[in-house]
Design a protein around this nucleic acid. Structure first.
Lengths: 196, 196
DNA sequence: GTGTCAACAGCACGCGCCGTGCCGATATGC
DNA sequence: GCATATCGGCACGGCGCGTGCTGTTGACAC
């Protein structure tokens, strides 16, 4: 037991990675329904223990799998035009959410999270908080460059921008399309743009 | 077979009502997890057929149960102050969502809906669309009384108002409290209130 | 009354996934 | 080579699903 605590796994690391890949692949093909530990194990040709040794629940697995694909795509450009930068990023995110495997996996986690407040907190912390923060960073920057009025706290604005898009995606049959994004940005700019 | 087609159920109607009550009661006590057809049947002292004869799935049952309790609570006051009226209604809705049985049942339906686009559409049509519409009606009225500027389409604004609250409730660990509601209304009024 | 018939409660089934044991094989690090 | 942890495979009890079947009940018609 020289230095065992943190690292010394056999082929563990590669295997973990491979399991995440299989999970994403499965999500792409069969969607949310049928995303079970049993299914992942079967598909990967692996014993269920091999999965349970790494993740305590399907939700934990999905959360990690989501990280693999959701990582970035999430970087606001910083041009001279906040509105254009937000618009571009929102379109990109919207496209990502409607494209497997991200959509199905995200929905699956969100569904699970409705039954489990702790999972909901973890989900928010690992993903949604990041989205909100980057949005806040971008609009705060716009305040500093004088594009947006200076004397307001934009924290809620960032949440409103992100939340509205998630709402539409999760709970309505409508697509998150350009017109929805423009409507959202209309209100945002009407509220906070420096008067023309 | 004189006039049988639409009505002649034995004790059907009362029974249906009773089953909805049991469902709500069950939701209050055990929450979302454990809301199954089997559980409702057991709790009601009823055969599973009796439930399947009325609803094709647990989601359909929950949707009807939700209607029993969610019906109203949803009526904006119409004073001389839009902001105050919206604020009051948002607080009321927020309280309703955080109080059993509405919260658990709503969350359960939303979770199910993530796996089923058709159910998602029905959920939106029966509940969320109503919420959006009443909000739109209220703010449109405010346009007519001159509280809000006239030359904008507020349809997206109504969606943004509702969506932001649902987002916070569904996907964040934060409460839908007065400060969140005020932050939201700040942006809304900054965008659309008639200049002071 | 008596007869008819749908709704009913109860039970059982096969299915699939859950989470957890136990096995014997494998390969890794000492 | 030897110890040890990971592995695949299998089986288990539990539970909800959706669907059969059986015998009972109660509303209604006559």
């Amino acid at each position: 037991m020289t230095n065992s605590p943190p690292a010394p796994r056999r082929r563990g690391a590669e295997r973990t990675r491979a399991l995440l890949e299989v999970t994403l692949q499965l999500a792409t093909e069969v969607g949310y329904a049928g995303l079970s530990i049993e299914a992942v194990a079967r598909r990967a040709g692996v014993g269920k223990h091999t999965i349970y040794r790494r993740w305590p629940s399907i939700a934990a697995l999905l959360l990690d799998a989501l990280e693999v694909v959701w990582v970035s795509d999430l970087d606001y450009r910083t041009s001279q035009d906040v509105r254009a930068d937000l618009r571009e990023q929102f379109l990109r995110s919207s496209h990502a959410l409607s494209t497997p495997p991200i959509g199905p996996v995200y929905r699956a986690v969100i569904a699970e999270a409705q039954a489990d407040a702790a999972l909901r907190a973890r989900l928010h912390q690992r993903f949604l908080a990041t989205v909100e923060q980057r949005t806040l960073d971008r609009v705060t920057h716009a305040q500093q460059t004088g594009e947006l009025i200076a004397d307001v706290d934009l924290e809620y604005a960032a949440e409103i921008l992100c939340g509205t898009l998630y709402y539409r995606w999760l709970l309505t049959p409508r697509p998150v399309d350009e017109s929805a994004i423009d409507g959202l940005l209309d209100m945002f700019m009407a509220a906070y743009a420096v008067a023309a």
